[in-house]
Design a protein around this nucleic acid. Structure first.
Length: 284
DNA sequence: CGTACACCCTGGCCGC
DNA sequence: TGCGGCCAGGGTGTAC
């Protein structure tokens, strides 16, 4: 499901419904997702309130106000198929029945219920401390946030200049830039007119000048649209994102290239085991 | 070290 | 209807 815009959409929703709320009851309904669920998850959270909800790349970071000088942080990754549902307090009686893949249940002090559902279980949850977060294994080697000021053509060129790998693979490498996934890499390369097969080192310089704004623009437009819904992504209230209607190449194999005057159709190839969509005429 | 690939897991869709 | 094959937005471990 989620790349940066989808995770950011979830973060915004969680910020509105979670900050200031207290966890009354936390339940893990199975021992593991992709990794074991911390056995002390419930005891570390119950009785404490949420201070903030942050995002780093595709990870959510929920900071807990637990009266500690070094606060507990919940790290949540949605994997491919994870989603977070927020059910408001029911008018009367209990919450609706849980579903097969509802793995984590968080009951809040206002009667609302947050549920983490993940059919494929590529998602995971972990606990850390605020002071250790940047040094955590998940984050320590991560590249810059693509929407931050620290991500610019100079920085990207520096990261690409020694790489022989295709630019498509380089942009999926979270050490180069953190938060892009298959969809938005395809879209950004199309928008910048850069072939996904081009060696990354040859993108350093002038092409990076075009690529950086293309990346920022597609991410910002996707966030504004509430993310993309392919099969199963939904916002907290179950609404779909609608950026999928704005895809220019992703998923459009065999369809006409949208660039004015181009008479080619969109091609699909496999790179690093994933589908790449591109126009062989407009992207060089 | 950098790169390439298999793999984790379930479900939906398509063709037979 | 049923079944096999293929596909899917992610990250990691292992083999070169």
């Amino acid at each position: 499901m989620p790349e940066l815009p989808e995770v950011e959409t979830v973060r915004t929703g969680l910020e509105q419904s979670l900050v200031g709320r207290r966890f009354d009851r936390v339940e893990a309904r199975r021992p593991d997702l992709r990794f074991p669920i911390p056995t002390d998850l419930a005891t570390r959270l119950q009785g404490h309130r949420v201070l903030r909800v942050n995002r780093r790349a595709k990870y959510l970071q929920i900071i807990i106000d637990d009266n500690s000088a070094d606060r507990t942080v919940v790290i949540l990754h949605l994997g491919m198929s994870g989603r977070v549902n927020l059910m408001p307090a029911p008018d009367a009686g209990p919450h609706a029945d849980l579903l097969k893949h509802d793995h984590l249940v968080f009951d809040l002090d206002d009667g609302a219920r947050m549920v983490f559902n993940d059919p494929r279980r590529f998602g995971f949850i972990a606990l850390s401390r605020e002071s250790a977060l940047d040094d955590h294994d998940y984050f320590k080697d991560m590249g810059p946030e693509p929407l931050g000021n620290a991500f610019n053509a100079e920085i990207l060129s520096q990261a690409l200049k020694d790489k022989d790998t295709p630019i498509k693979a380089a942009l999926l490498d979270q050490r180069v830039v953190a938060g892009l996934g298959n969809i938005y890499v395809c879209e950004a390369l199309y928008d910048a007119g850069i072939s996904p097969k081009r060696k990354a080192r040859t993108v350093a310089g002038l092409r990076a000048d075009r690529l950086v704004p293309a990346i920022k623009d597609v991410l910002q437009r996707a966030i504004a649209a509430g993310g993309s819904t392919l099969r199963d992504f939904a916002q907290l209230d179950g609404q779909s994102g609608y950026f999928q209607h704005s895809f220019r190449v992703y998923g459009r194999e065999g369809e006409a290239c949208l660039s004015p005057g181009c008479d080619k159709v969109v091609k699909r190839i496999t790179q690093s085991g994933r589908s790449t969509f591109y126009c062989s005429s407009c992207q060089r």
